[in-house]
Design a protein around this nucleic acid. Structure first.
Lengths: 203, 203
DNA sequence: TGAAGTTATGAATCGTAGTTCACTTCTTGG
DNA sequence: CCAAGAAGTGAACTACGATTCATAACTTCA
């Protein structure tokens, strides 16, 4: 044997893999899935198309990982916001502000994660993504129910409905490009009413 | 001139067009967009693939019309339910029962209309579809606000959020195949709370 | 009936990615 | 430096389904 993979080579391989992933995330953020052809990803990463296949068995694997990475960041950001200590109503406010604020900052990405038509393989990942949001919200709602600041309810369904409400209220504006200033405050009011948070609970 | 299109011929043409449309709707209902290749549609309609193109300039046109037709039926059904005379809360209950009931009866179709990845051309139609629902709901909410049974709110945003809530709460179960029995009643409660309908307003 | 014109057909064509692979370039250890 | 093997390359290959088009079958009406 006259060749063995050294740490330096491994590092370079890892770097290349990372570059491919980053390139794909960048394209997804700027142009959605349409911009994510293997050729385009390879070009942006500075490698040949064939090289992509030395790191990902199929395009579906690549795109799935891209989705997971991008979605993970969103969930992490929203999770951090909703896990702040404080009253339940305030945490729900933070959830919506974070979710919507990030969506408006990267509308193309938000659309890609929430709604853009894709490979069915990725669609499954989207369900996971939404469930992650749902679980986050459900935990907070359950917390509120347990401490009595929210009325009894099925936290999972409330959470699913809230996530859907937020997503739907945003998809229109995101597709249109411009958002009504009113959207976020109205959504917050809606969410408080929907969970049963009383006025007294705010602030 | 030795040929002119007669009424009989026109009728046959119309029938063929209708058969193609119906075949496509059937395939969409049973197998989603994946089942809607031009060849499959033609086969089911009993015509050759080329014939499809004598009635629809492109597949996008066909699929768009299919979507519009199928979605129109849903909106019409829900519209009929929500326009029943009676208290606002009851109409919202009817909305959800109709929407969800139909979705559970044709889960594949519901998924196709609500969420399945498709051609961007159709995606635009999906926004129209959702807006139709939104407008339907918004009218009812506005009605409730005007008559004082609902608190002041932006009906458009409430409506968008409600539509999203219902869709999201259903997509999971639809994808999974089985629905929790709890889903519909919980959604109704959620919707009442979310719109601000008081307990007294029910029944 | 037959000439003019229309409609139906489906095999062949086209376009578009994703994927492969023969070849080149690089790395390693003796 | 060199043989063994790995990683990188990108042009060529493929799969797939939409679309076309030369041809056949059919309709009309003088």
């Amino acid at each position: 044997m006259a060749y063995r993979r050294t740490a330096a080579v491994q590092a370079r391989l890892d770097a290349a893999r990372g570059a491919i992933l980053r390139a794909a995330i960048g394209l997804l953020t700027e142009h959605g899935y349409a911009g994510c052809s293997v050729a385009a990803v390879a070009g942006r990463a500075g490698v040949a198309t064939g090289t992509v296949y030395r790191h990902f068995p199929t395009k579906a694997h690549l795109v799935t990982e891209v989705f997971r990475e991008a979605a993970g960041r969103e969930v992490a950001a929203v999770g951090a916001a909703i896990r702040q200590p404080g009253p339940v109503a305030g945490r729900i406010t933070a959830l919506i502000e974070t979710f919507a604020g990030r969506a408006f900052k990267s509308p193309r990405l938000a659309y890609a994660l929430l709604a853009e038509p894709v490979d069915p393989a990725v669609d499954a990942e989207r369900l996971v993504f939404r469930r992650a949001y749902r679980d986050l919200v459900a935990a907070t709602v359950a917390d509120g129910v347990a401490t009595g600041v929210l009325p009894p309810q099925n936290p999972d369904i409330t959470a699913a409905a809230l996530v859907g409400a937020i997503a739907e209220a945003l998809v229109g504006p995101l597709a249109a490009g411009a958002a009504e200033v009113d959207t976020i405050p109205s959504l917050i009011t809606f969410a408080h009413r929907a969970t049963g948070a009383t006025r007294a609970t705010h602030a």
